[in-house]
Design a protein around this nucleic acid. Structure first.
Length: 500
RNA sequence: GGGCCGGUAGCUCAGUGGUAGAGCAUCUGACUUUUAAUCAGAGGGUCGCGGGUUCGACCCCCGCCCGGCUCACCA
């Protein structure tokens, strides 16, 4: 018989025991005076003498350790990833409370009432006078020394990961601070937060394959958005001159340590500026966010200090020259020459060849925060041409830790040119590019009403959070990353057969 | 999708072509300031799944499932 099965039986028996002592195995409200982190922060610096007169506390938490020694014992209660010790002495509590202490299992959630003191070894501890039972665990906790290390289990059962690996909670707290910081900075600058459709009849705003779903009553297929861009720019047409949205995008593509099929993007649009203005704004946003989240513009990422205080800027062609590694180093003129580009890339068009060479030559080297600007028109169907070089557009990307974390451009607001760009994309689609942009007539119509000159930018929240939390995989900053389903667990059956 | 690596007790991991192991956790007992508490004893396994080879397979072979890394693609 499986242990898990047996353990559930044992634990259900414990539930009876707890009830027999007059406690509810799944309690109701518990009013506490402090959280564990509050007590640790407030009283860790205090000496034993400073804990007089007695400081009375009521706290709740999950039992993480138990050391029983006959007529007394210790336990650690964990809350928000931090642990505080409690001491239960037979003489100091009621008979029932001591019996409850004897019946506790690792993982149970309890409350205690008592006062603070320091043990002989100096650890801040609650001297317990009263116990409360709040919730029973029926399954075993991960091992106390190594914790939960199996990566698959950590992602599938994130709650266990958080119990066993308290630093995980801190990562997600930092992720929340990234979002809060960006939101506050944009609000302060007069940007309005909006929400646009996630289910779209025509997808667009990025080069990606979509997820398809179906609405029954209307009997239409809809696409989960790959980007909110075209809706946000409709709002610019309508006069919301500074808008932003922070929410999920969905792209039906590969999964990797840098890609999850659903991911969080900040997109913001500002009328009457251009990509140069956005470069300056981006630098401010990133420096401020790094400072708030990591405590400094210099952050340690996998052993390398990444400095958001010093963000370099290269044109795409300059970046290729800068990071070219090997013989046959090109000149700037080479990078404008179709023949030279064709010798170094098999991508279909001149601009795609340049972008292809850039990605292969530079991306891995862009560890320090870097703005790369001026992109080929073929790869940027929604960006405005450079006036003096129409085959290039006013676009930049922000790289850090070898990843693209931002993408911005002067928005194309000429509807005739936009129409031609869509047609160019349709031609690319005919040649087999499954990610080429679709014709969006409704968006064209909006542009026909006149969109002010505008700069727009997207920042990948997950990747930024990776850099600022020193996380190696995007799955470490997404609470429930996409995994293949596990199949039947059999736990319902085990619980059923263990029922008393 | 390709290549490489992994899946053994609840957790962390050993293991060998010949009856499946350790530590922690669990259960029983001792212990009134311990802290990876300690001490004595006990239980717990379809060795990811399915085939094959073999007198005999956790181990060798084939297929499949799940995960990690990496390449391709993408942000």
């Amino acid at each position: 018989m499986a242990l898990e099965h047996e353990l559930i039986r044992q634990r259900l028996h414990r539930v009876r025991e707890v009830q027999a002592l007059g406690f509810q195995p799944y309690g109701h409200r518990f009013d506490f005076t402090h959280t564990v982190p509050q007590l640790l922060a407030g009283y860790s610096p205090k000496s034993a003498e400073e804990l007089e007169p007695r400081v009375s506390v009521r706290i709740a938490g999950r039992v993480q350790t138990i050391r029983r020694m006959g007529k007394a014992g210790f336990a650690h209660l964990q809350q928000s990833g931090e642990r505080l010790q409690v001491y239960v002495k037979k003489d100091a509590v009621s008979e029932n409370d001591y019996a409850l202490y004897q019946a506790l299992d690792l993982g149970d959630i309890i409350g205690v009432e008592g006062y603070l003191f320091r043990t002989r070894t100096g650890e801040l501890t609650v001297h317990v006078e009263k116990l409360f039972f709040l919730a029973k665990t029926l399954l075993g906790m991960p091992e106390k020394w190594h914790g939960l290390e199996d990566i698959e289990t950590r992602y599938r059962q994130r709650y266990l990961d958080m119990i066993a690996n308290p630093e995980v909670q801190r990562v997600f707290a930092s992720r929340a601070r990234v979002i809060a910081s960006l939101r506050r900075q944009l609000d302060e600058r007069g940007f309005l937060e909006v929400e646009t459709p996630m289910m779209q009849p025509i997808y667009g705003g990025a080069a990606a394959r979509p997820f398809v779903t179906h609405h029954n009553t209307l009997d239409i297929d809809l696409y989960l958005r790959i980007a909110p861009e075209l809706y946000l720019k409709r709002l610019i047409v309508g006069g919301l001159e500074r808008v932003y949205e922070i929410n999920r995008n969905f792209r039906n593509e590969g999964v990797s340590s840098q890609h999850n099929p659903e991911f969080t993007m900040l997109e913001f649009y500002q009328a009457y500026t251009d990509y140069r203005g956005l470069m300056d704004l981006s630098v401010e946003l990133l420096q401020q966010t790094a400072g708030e989240v990591a405590g400094s513009t210099k952050v340690d990422y996998q052993g390398v200090i990444i400095d958001f205080g010093d963000i370099r800027r290269f044109t795409m062609r300059e970046a290729i020259l800068e990071f070219w590694n090997g013989p046959d180093k090109p000149s700037l003129d080479n990078l404008r020459d179709f023949e030279w580009l064709a010798r170094h890339s098999s991508a279909p068009s001149k601009g795609e060849k340049l972008a292809d060479i850039f990605e292969r030559t530079c991306e891995a080297h862009l560890v320090q925060p870097t703005i790369v600007f001026d992109y080929p028109v073929e790869t940027s169907p929604l960006s405005k041409n450079k006036p003096d070089e129409p085959e290039m557009v006013e676009r930049f990307e922000i790289y850090a830790a070898g990843m693209e974390i931002g993408n911005a451009y002067t928005e194309l607001n000429d509807p005739q040119e936009q129409r031609r760009r869509f047609e160019m994309q349709l031609a690319m689609a005919e040649r087999g590019n499954v990610e080429a942009h679709r014709m969006d007539e409704d968006y064209l119509r909006a542009l026909c009403y006149g969109m002010p000159p505008t700069g727009g930018e997207g920042i990948g929240i997950d990747r930024l959070a990776m850099v600022l939390t020193n996380s190696r995989s995007i799955r470490d900053v997404i609470l429930f990353p996409l995994l293949r389903p596990e199949g039947e667990l059999g736990i319902a059956r085990a619980m059923q057969s263990a029922e008393l």
